[in-house]
Amino acid sequence: MTNADRGWELLPLGDGALLIRFGDAIDEALNRTVHAFAARLEKEPFAGMIECVPAFASVAVHYEPLTVMRSRSQDEARHETVYETVYARVERVLDSFVAADAMEERTVIEIPVCYGDELGPDLAFVAAHCGLSEDEVIAIHSGGAYVVHMIGFAPGFPYLGGMSERIAAPRRQTPRTIIPAGSVGIAGKQTGVYPIATPGGWQLIGRTPLALFRPERAIPSLLHAGHEVRFKPISRSDYDRYGEGAR
């Protein structure tokens, strides 16, 4: 069920989801196509579609099989499986889908971070590992522009692209059993922010007072795929004051 010449591949993901793979690399243009297609499907959902989950290079479409079955057109009535019907419905959207050429302006989200000391206990390790001073690590980390490729792993957790390899550092030998919400970390060539307290092995270089996961809001994630993220160093007193203001 491939359609490699047209740039995508459709696969079943169980009896209630279909996966559309547009490629297998982390690539800006590819990622734009993924999110544009997910947005298009959401705008024109087919009967039985529940939701779309875009990632780096793929989109999963979750559906309710019985609703799909009951909404079959005359043409679709000959399908032997529900998957076949969903496949045809998704393919129809793909056929008329043209990835936007125009580069849309990215929304920039600034994330204040208090680096080092107790809020970033691994900053010294990262600096030593990279042969840099702590201030240099902060300057490099906060000097970069990062693109949100996808949200996953935890509510509101952004997979960010664009970190300088000069501050890359391996994961901790022993993961921490609990990492506080707001922690900003580095793992290999990736950087990220933990929206909720979870166990984890990332090197923690700072913490943001900003809530990335906001379950009470209509859109519970501060960051969306396609956003550009910039980190802004703040002092400990700014961090503490920010917290008060928000509460």
């Binding site: 993901l13 989801a17 297998d24 990632a55 780096f56 793929s58 989109v59 996808m150 997979y159």
Partner: peptide, 10 residues
């Protein structure tokens, strides 16, 4: 592998 969506029962 790149991270991508999973489903119930994966």
């Amino acid at each position: 592998l790149l991270s991508e969506a999973v489903a119930l029962g994966t």
